[in-house]
Nucleic acid binder design. Structure first.
Length: 145
DNA sequence: GCCAACGTTGGC
DNA sequence: GCCAACGTTGGC
């Protein structure tokens, strides 16, 4: 399994919006950046991702799961844009802020810090565990820890 | 709301 | 294929 991070501006599409979509999840459309698209093309069903609120909040608020492989973005009129579908699987009990991430030396290589503008990012397994720990969630059971 | 960073576009 | 202009992202 691989790990990822999805950024969204909460006033456009928030964690609560994703939760309200339930098991069916939501097409992660609108991405018009090659690197982000390539990341989505590399995803497999069952891969997990952090859901991060950009602009407002600036924190990891939930954990989601890829529930459909990349496919053409239904909102794009250009066939080069693909996207996956994701669904919410667990909230993060104590949202992990960008400030917290920046302050943690173990996370100094995270894309969130170094590739600020990339909206769909890979997350290393150690980073995944560390952010889960900070957020008070067990990375295996997804129960509060 | 500002502006730095950075990706994309398009003229040459 | 270079690079200036431009648009967008996203933290502050």
């Amino acid at each position: 399994m691989q790990y990822w991070l999805f950024k969204s501006e909460p006033f456009k599409f928030s964690w609560d919006d994703l939760v309200s979509k339930g098991k069916a999840g939501e097409e992660w459309d609108g991405v018009r950046n090659y690197q982000a698209r390539n990341n989505m093309r590399a995803m497999k069903v069952g891969d997990r991702g952090f859901f991060y609120h950009s602009n407002k909040g600036l924190e990891v608020v939930g954990i989601c799961e890829v529930c459909a492989l990349s496919h053409p973005d239904s909102t794009a009129d250009d066939p080069r844009w693909d996207c996956v579908d994701i669904r919410a699987i667990a909230p993060v009990p104590h949202p992990v802020t960008l400030k917290d991430v920046k302050a943690n030396e173990n996370l100094s290589d995270m894309s969130l810090v170094n590739s600020m503008r990339l909206s769909v990012q890979p997350v290393k397994e150690e980073e995944w565990k560390e952010v889960c720990r900070m957020g008070g969630i067990d990375p295996l059971t997804l129960e509060p820890a």
